[in-house]
Write a protein that binds this DNA or RNA. Structure first.
Lengths: 246, 246
DNA sequence: GCTCATGGTTTCACTATATGAAACTTCGTT
DNA sequence: AACGAAGTTTCATATAGTGAAACCATGAGC
């Protein structure tokens, strides 16, 4: 049903993956669709400012920015939480990330970069696997048991570092630990030299299953520091829950 | 051409205007389309997470947030400018807004609220007329002459306060003044009690015609203060231009 | 607890509408 | 100037979206 919309969306998704990389012909080849169809759909999408064409290369268009700014979670949840996360970031002088679960993945919602942060590893709007980020593990720990197991069942474990969790058993073990401790750690499990610590964030009224984290280089994030940070995270978590109660 | 996409977009635009207000039947009535068509398109849009249905009411979906976060202007321009605007906001302790021109309107791109700001008058992603905001007038002052005149020709002047500019002649007068002074003021021209001051921002390399502003209650924004703020704005403008030079 | 009304959902025949092969244009390169 | 590669337009065709009508679910009123 309504294949045309889906086809158009497929094109937009392709452009989302690689902005400024693809030309009409590329798109036709990659998606295996007819040239004329692609041409017309691209034209329409351009007219609607959903895509933008510069030198025959396609980019996401400004309509998406406009509409994206008005999504409930952005206007209500993120905007309200943002100033609190900003305080946290200034308090500990580290980079803060906010995320929620979406389609069995971690979706990055907000980010406050500390002045001393170097690497840019994630951008708002990115999605990453649940099992290799502290954010994801935190979220898993607050999901209803059966939902959590269903999601884990469908995970395809892929290593990105030699510390990456590589099987469901180990993941579930860690999740049980997180449930007790109230926070999760990613100790270079996704990227060498990068350590993150997260606390889960459940906002009942907004049907929000998410988490937020502090991240930085492993040199700075030793055991003692992590314990300190976990306390800070929990403190700000309570502030957020209080603010978004109704 | 590709009417299906346009029809779908029309629906999304309607939802954008009033999230959580419309049901299938409402949409059918408002847009004057067939019920079955609307039903199917809504279903598809829902499947793609472009729309979300809660209790038969439609909201913008999370796909729009994801894609919106990756629009060039957001990832490159806004993210880079944001920390500078944050400094400005903290420096003067007032609310900062960033905007660009889009379809002859002011499009709000970013906002840093000061702790003492009360009213929320604009949200990121909103569009407002050019002639009744300081942001818009600043932008008009840096557009190529013919483009500026073309845009002004198409403006439908509508008063929202008794100070609103109500004819092209007065607007062009003010624009010429702004060109000399290097900043523009909105003295309760859009909303009673609200004063804004903006400087234009042209980023050649990014083909960016925009501006940023400070805004607050008229009590606080007297003549002397405005002069001070204009100097601050110009200072930060230069910092931004320097940072986004290449 | 039955009836009615309202709004959401499904069916199915129809034709309007999107499709795609081929022709054509544009532009940059040799 | 000729060639090739990429974008654009044409037009016949049939697929895929359309919409009237029937159907179902829910909730209000009696």
């Amino acid at each position: 049903m309504s294949n045309t919309i889906k086809k158009a969306f497929e094109i937009v998704q392709l452009i989302e993956k690689n902005q400024g990389k693809y030309t009409l012909t590329d798109i036709v080849k990659i998606l295996g669709i007819n040239k004329t169809t692609a041409f017309r759909n691209l034209k329409t999408l351009e007219e609607l400012n959903i895509l933008e064409k510069i030198n025959n290369l396609y980019y996401l268009g400004i309509s998406l920015f406009e509409m994206g700014s008005k999504v409930y979670i952005k206007q209500i949840v993120i905007e309200k939480i943002h100033p609190i996360l900003r305080e946290l970031s200034e308090d500990v002088n580290e980079t803060v990330n906010l995320a929620k679960i979406h389609n069995g993945m971690v979706l990055y919602l907000d980010k406050i970069e500390s002045k001393r942060s170097l690497q840019i590893q994630s951008s708002i709007g990115d999605t990453l696997p649940l099992y290799c980020t502290s954010l994801g593990k935190s979220i898993l720990s607050i999901l209803p048991e059966d939902e959590m197991r269903e999601i884990i069942k469908n995970i395809n474990f892929e290593r990105t570092t030699n510390k990456t969790i590589s099987n469901p058993k180990k993941l579930i073990e860690q999740i049980n630990e997180i449930k007790l401790k109230g926070y999760s750690i990613d100790d270079e499990e996704f990227e060498e030299g990068l350590v993150c610590i997260s606390v889960p964030l459940y906002l009942k009224h907004h049907n929000f299953y998410g988490s937020f984290s502090l991240s930085g280089p492993s040199i700075r994030f030793d055991q003692a520091t992590l314990l300190e940070l976990s306390k800070k995270l929990k403190k700000y978590k309570n502030i957020i829950i209080e603010k978004l109660k109704h």
